[in-house]
Computed example of a mutant assay.
Amino acid sequence: MTTDGTGTHGAILADTVPEGGDTPLVELRNAGKSYGNIRALHGVDLTVRPGQVTCVLGDNGAGKSTLIKIISGLHQHTEGEFLVDGCPVRFSTPREALDKGIATVYQDLATVPLMPVWRNFFLGSEMTKGPWPVRRLDIDRMKKTADQELRNMGIVLDDLEQPIGTLSGGQRQCVAIARAVYFGARVLILDEPTAALGVKQSGVVLKYIAAARDRGLGVIFITHNPHHAYMVGDHFSVLRLGTMELTASRDQVSLEELTNHMAGGTELAALKHELAQVRGVDVEELPEEKDLTAPVANPGEKAS
Rank of each mutant, 00 (worst) to 15 (best):
G198S: 09
D234A: 11
E257K: 11
N120Q: 06
P226T: 11
V278S: 07
H227L: 13
A294D: 08
P88K: 11
F183L: 02
K143W: 03
M244E: 13
D45F: 05
L268E: 10
E285Q: 11
I222G: 00
N298D: 15
P116N: 05
G203F: 07
H224L: 07
G203A: 14
E79S: 11
G165Y: 01
K64R: 10
P133K: 02
E79N: 13
R215A: 03
G264I: 04
N60D: 14
N30R: 13
M262S: 06
H77T: 05
Q107D: 05
R215G: 07
G265A: 09
R186P: 14
L13W: 09
V117D: 00
T3F: 02
T54Y: 09
Q171H: 07
E161V: 00
A196V: 15
D138W: 09
I209H: 00
A269I: 11
Q173K: 12
V112W: 01
N30I: 08
I220K: 01
R179Q: 03
S168G: 15
L67G: 03
M142Y: 00
Y182W: 04
V175F: 01
V105R: 02
T93I: 04
P24F: 07
T259M: 08
G170H: 01
T66Q: 05
E256H: 12
L57E: 03
R136P: 00
D214L: 11
A210E: 14
G86I: 14
G73T: 09
N37S: 12
T166A: 11
V48Q: 01
